[in-house]
Design a protein around this nucleic acid. Sequence first.
DNA 1: CTGACCAACATGGTCGGACCAAACACCGTC
DNA 2: GACGGTGTTTGGTCCGACCATGTTGGTCAG
Lengths: 240, 240
Amino acid sequence: MTTKHDQISDTLTEDILQGRYRAGERLPSERDLSARFDANRGAVREAMKRLEQLGVVDVQPGGARVKDTNQASLDVIGHLLNQGDLPDRDLVDQILVVINALVSIAAEQLVKSGRDIEIEEMRGFVKAFFKQELNKEAHSLARIALMQKMLQSSHNLPLQIIARTLFEQFAPSMAPLSAYARVDNQRFAQNAKILDLALEKRDLAAVRAAFDAFSELNRETMVAAFDLAQSTPGQEANSL
Amino acid sequence: MTTKHDQISDTLTEDILQGRYRAGERLPSERDLSARFDANRGAVREAMKRLEQLGVVDVQPGGARVKDTNQASLDVIGHLLNQGDLPDRDLVDQILVVINALVSIAAEQLVKSGRDIEIEEMRGFVKAFFKQELNKEAHSLARIALMQKMLQSSHNLPLQIIARTLFEQFAPSMAPLSAYARVDNQRFAQNAKILDLALEKRDLAAVRAAFDAFSELNRETMVAAFDLAQSTPGQEANSL
DNA sequence: CTGACCAACATGGTCGGACCAAACACCGTC
DNA sequence: GACGGTGTTTGGTCCGACCATGTTGGTCAG
């Protein structure tokens, strides 16, 4: 069982994100909330602290007011994705754009100032795509490993934090869609070879171009899976 | 006066980020902490909730364990910047890299799918740099306005959230450095003209290149100011 | 009727003490 | 030395209370 203050904060977060409380509006008092959730005020307060840190609410003496979504913390993304049966398609696309861009920066940093060893290690991950007989799961794991290695090699803390935060919220929402994914191994292999070559030469522009192509292919794959899932609804329960 | 649980969470955050508690180590119990801070356990619990949400600590029945920095939330950046007299130079550079990249993505999105009106509005902000008689403050404001307009035009929520979060933590740390900034108005104007032209044509590659150059110039300016400040210490108090 | 002022009320912040279930540490048993 | 049980510690929750401040509504002078 999850803790009580987590239930409270989750419920309130959902309420707010779904617009049941408009931005600027005042939330019920802690005493009212403790009555509504049949909980002690202390538990409610802990939940409020969470909401506050999530950036969806501004707690002040006199009352707690709801903030606008775009003033929230990055962690709201996960909540936004979990609204409804399927995540919002636009949001999914936006996240993919950002993730790809972040990994692209990491690649750039790697080429610019990475050690030779790191480049070599990176090429090892890229070479995983040369083998075209990868099945769907192995392919997915290889893509994730590649991205994570890239981020790690960037030696850029904010970059790593942002990417991880985004990814952690994104992955669970996309997991049920893996059944619909269709990966074009050949195109991935093609792109991987170009990327590998660019890495070997440490050609910044080439790496950038190759990696963007790689990312774009990745994004297309996921968006296609998403659209396919959306047009074939009602199979959420038996995906496991 | 700040609230008590804020003092507690700030102090503990600082302690952890400065390595006084190693990753994996257990934090003192809530009861011990409430004694140390001469506070009620409820206040400590609220502080712990904040630390937990900050991602620097993992609270579980049995004890609270310190997490690794790169598992933290993006909000730790501000705390990391506030350590010591002057922010860490590498971290500052990393943040600038990320911010520039984010705004660059926004620019890309704008060119790809922005409405004509938005492009025009954007050009208005770019044109602000044509006038070379801008003083330091006006120039700084113009740069910020340009970036924010760009992010807003991207219609990418995660992007906006990330950029805002980063910027909000970054700006206060950089404020005292504005005195050391030396802006090369001419180069900015030059870059602005190229960027303006690229925007007019909606030439994606050109916009990207122009904007990257613009960002790089921006970054150079700030890093230079930073280095100058670092070599001229002991003037923190009278900067206002 | 309008506007300024003031008192009563509501709200968040803090406190002290208490109980529970689960995790942990210790110790004797085998 | 490995194992199991027990007592302690820890976080999670509850209750009731007090304070300072913010909010609200009503009163009163203009």
